[in-house]
């Protein structure tokens, strides 16, 4: 995470040199500083900064796409011409272990329409979700684990 501080300092320096303390100046400085640090990658062995930053950006974009797509699905079903509503409470076994991973997964599940995190079991082995289209529980469980949890773990580990 030291690289993040370095990147912010570079952005600050850029703002200072240009006497431009605005959001645009900060963004330009941050991007430029990021480019400089990226060129100097061999200097920092074992760093996770770049993968973390780019990974979280990619994950965020993927999540936005997912939110819009499945919102349309719920909309269709509310208006009466979509899939039939079959509510179900499903237990999903967790691979995520740390607080951050579980929280992120739970929030992502809630944000994508059609699924909603209800509870985490006390031993942290399972996540209980409420699904709006829970006709095929096994498929839903596999899909959540496969797309969402895999992506989160890829970024964070």
């Amino acid at each position: 995470m030291n690289l993040l501080v370095l990147n912010l300092l570079l952005a600050l320096a850029w703002m200072g040199f240009n006497a431009d303390f605005s959001l645009g100046g900060f963004a330009a400085g941050f991007v430029l500083g990021h480019g400089v640090l990226w060129l100097g990658r061999p200097l920092y062995p074992n760093q996770r900064y770049f993968r973390l930053l780019w990974g979280s950006l990619g994950y965020f974009l993927w999540l936005l796409k997912e939110i819009v797509l499945s919102s349309l699905k719920v909309t269709a079903s509310v208006l009466g011409f979509g899939a039939k509503v079959q509510p179900a409470v499903i237990a999903i076994p967790l691979d995520a272990r740390t607080d951050l991973e579980i929280t992120l997964l739970a929030c992502s599940i809630t944000l994508t329409p059609g699924t909603l995190t209800l509870d985490v079991s006390p031993d942290r082995k399972h996540l209980y979700i409420h699904a709006m289209f829970g006709g095929d529980a096994a498929a839903l469980c596999a899909e959540t684990k496969d797309s969402m949890e895999r992506r989160i773990l890829e970024v964070l580990r």
């Binding site: 509503v85 079959q86 509510p87 179900a88 409470v89 499903i90 237990a91 209800l118 509870d119 209980y128 829970g134 006709g135 529980a137």
Partner: peptide, 8 residues
């Protein structure tokens, strides 16, 4: 109408 309830 709930088809399945793992918590119950």
């Amino acid at each position: 109408g709930t088809v399945r309830d793992d918590l119950a």
